[in-house]
Amino acid sequence: MLTQIGIYQDFIFGGLASAGFAMIANVRLNALPYCGFIAAAGHALRYQLIHNGGDIVSGSFCGALVIGLLAVVCSRMAKSPAESLSYPALLPMIPGMYAYKAVHAAIGCMQAASQDMFEHNLYLLQYNSMMTFFVISSLVLGITLPVFALKKMTFEATRKNYRHGTTTNPIFYKNGRDS
């Protein structure tokens, strides 16, 4: 039985993983520390919830909610859209293992020598596919809720030195668009 790594290591390595993947996604250099911190906070919360009786879906949702809120708040400071902070921060929580196990089970179904083995692999395929779907859904729901709640802050994060009412364009608010 593998030992748990502890919340501090989960915090540090979750942040490192997110910063690394953020670099692959070409996030701005000044936004990398924000990505790391946001991911570390969300991942540590998820770790704490899962190891205190919660399941992975609800833990992932709560972690993603925290990531979404922090991303919206930090997007102004990082001068980047909230997605560029929250998406890399979510990557350590993407259920890659479940997705891989689903594919592995599909291959196992094809190679099954008996009905029992086929049914076992089919169970694994269905279980892992469902878990992948539900975990990713909960992650996306978690980061989308703060975007809906704080729409103005989210979509004006990259707006520079704007003062309300100073725009010269008279049809700026055409059709009631508020951003």
């Binding site: 390595f13 993983a17 670099m23 070409n26 293992m97």
Partner: peptide, 24 residues
């Protein structure tokens, strides 16, 4: 242009090694 490839490869390595640690 994007980040230099060797930096991205190094960062990917660090990130995946961190992933490995997250899985104990």
């Amino acid at each position: 242009s994007r980040y230099p490839d060797w930096i991205v490869a190094f960062a990917a390595g660090v990130a995946n090694a961190s992933f490995c640690r997250l899985f104990c």
